[in-house]
Design a protein around this nucleic acid. Structure first.
Lengths: 119, 119
DNA sequence: TCAATAATTCAAATATAGTTGAACCATTGA
DNA sequence: TCAATGGTTCAACTATATTTGAATTATTGA
């Protein structure tokens, strides 16, 4: 993960509206939700929702798939794993004994094949 | 973790400058760094650094301790654990088998006693 | 005591992000 | 075919964040 994408990802979560969108989609997992449902759930005007969904999708935090005239959005969980790894990379460099952060090799994602990067 | 603090934390990381500061301090672990060293390392004017350090400290992402006329800043690693847990709370609700996120009970931090919340 | 050092606060300026309604494009079903 | 539906884009506006230099506070060491 490069710095620019990390900043973009944090920007994607640094607003109440976008954090709500993300958490809603995390809860829904692979099912995701179509834009209209998200708008209804969060009581957002469609133009505003679209603005945020676009930003989040461009950041890679969400994926989108067309279903007829609906757009289905899903949270990209794998990318969140990468972001966490980036943040804690080199944590307590040289002093692993003082480090509270559970680490995993860079770029790996545990278990399921269902969250491959789709952005 | 409440939504308000999560948003504040993400805002704290949603800028190149602040992300650099945070990562620098994560690398330094318990040692941390004094403000002047951070300014030198990142080539920032002191007023601007101070602005960002204040925001990050108020968000709880950093802790600060006075040492004579120096201010020593450290990354609050425990809080980052909480933030990650908040994000993935209820991930894939009802469908844990499709969930790629490794989870831990809310509010817990693994291993070391050295990262107790100090903010 | 007092000049030097470390860092912060303040106010003004610039830059960036968020919101809105109107207009638009694509898909569907009658 | 074409009106209805789902969603996005655009342009204008509002709101918020970032940066800067000057002034300020606190601590230290001579």
């Amino acid at each position: 993960m490069r710095k620019i994408s990390a900043v973009t990802l944090f920007e994607s979560l640094a607003s109440g509206v976008r954090l709500d969108i993300y958490r809603l989609l995390v809860r829904k997992g692979l099912e995701g939700r179509v834009a209209g449902d998200i708008a209804a759930a969060l009581d957002l005007p469609p133009t505003n929702l679209s603005f945020h969904l676009k930003a989040m999708t461009q950041a890679g935090l969400l994926t989108v798939e067309q279903e007829g005239r609906f757009q289905r959005y899903r949270a990209n969980l794998a990318l969140m794993q990468d972001l966490i790894a980036y943040l804690t990379e080199e944590c307590c460099a040289g002093n692993p004994e003082q480090c509270a952060v559970p680490r995993r090799a860079k770029g790996t994602v545990p278990r399921t094949p269902s969250t491959a990067k789709t952005a």
